[in-house]
Design a protein around this nucleic acid. Sequence first.
DNA 1: TTAAACTATATAGTAACTATAGAGTCAAGT
DNA 2: ACTTGACTCTATAGTTACTATATAGTTTAA
Lengths: 132, 132
Amino acid sequence: MKIGELATLTGCTVQSIRYYEKEQLLPTMQRSDGNYRIYGLAAIEQLKLIKHCRNLDLSLAEIRTLLELKQQPDITCDTVNKIVDSHIEQVALRIKELKHLQEQLRSLRDSCSLKSTVNECGILKKLSVKKT
Amino acid sequence: MKIGELATLTGCTVQSIRYYEKEQLLPTMQRSDGNYRIYGLAAIEQLKLIKHCRNLDLSLAEIRTLLELKQQPDITCDTVNKIVDSHIEQVALRIKELKHLQEQLRSLRDSCSLKSTVNECGILKKLSVKKT
DNA sequence: TTAAACTATATAGTAACTATAGAGTCAAGT
DNA sequence: ACTTGACTCTATAGTTACTATATAGTTTAA
């Protein structure tokens, strides 16, 4: 299988597959006579894992760690848990921040009446004055 | 006032102030004999506005638009409203996405028991199999 | 055989900075 | 007068996870 077929099978772009190889998330593939990368079924598996992790917003560094752990089946999976746990925390924190942001934006939005001019725009006034 | 003082007064770093100037969020400042940027009180105002907007996660492009609008006090502030509204929507969407993510991460986390080895780790299994 | 479709590498761009290198400026102390 | 240290200047590279582009080579179908 060549890279284009792998791309359509997994929903990745050709470029990102090459990028993952460069970043060591996929192994260096063997090449055909014409220097084309040749993939087997294992590559589909691995790319799907990568893609699923990316959908969960895991960083490439985190995914690389998971993949390395997968190569050592006999150690305990504490590290896997830790990665997921810390990621859950990060997401929770981000949600909290965004909710706070949402409140501020709404209160900002309420400070501008419909027909006013920029000159007396409550939003711009608030932005200029409010402390950081 | 030189750039370092402005930085401490506003809580920005010296580099980011220079960056904002390069990106046209601050005007090109006049220079001293020794080629140092010289700032007045207006710069504090403007930097605080920028910083406050950044705290609200507005992009530099959005902030640039707001600052341009500020220069034209007589037009209606529809555009200001639109920027804020669209930003509120973006944040709401992101919160929704993150909540969905959070669910998936938690269900993933639940699939790994405490003492298992990587070999039989429910998390890695799920990640490999689950569809994108 | 030739054109289309595919693949290869290398490089630059994205956002909003941060970090670094190398050089010039200024104020205070000796 | 000289030097030291703190400050400033510009230019460049790095960050993340790609995407886009240019240029060149390969394969496949008509």
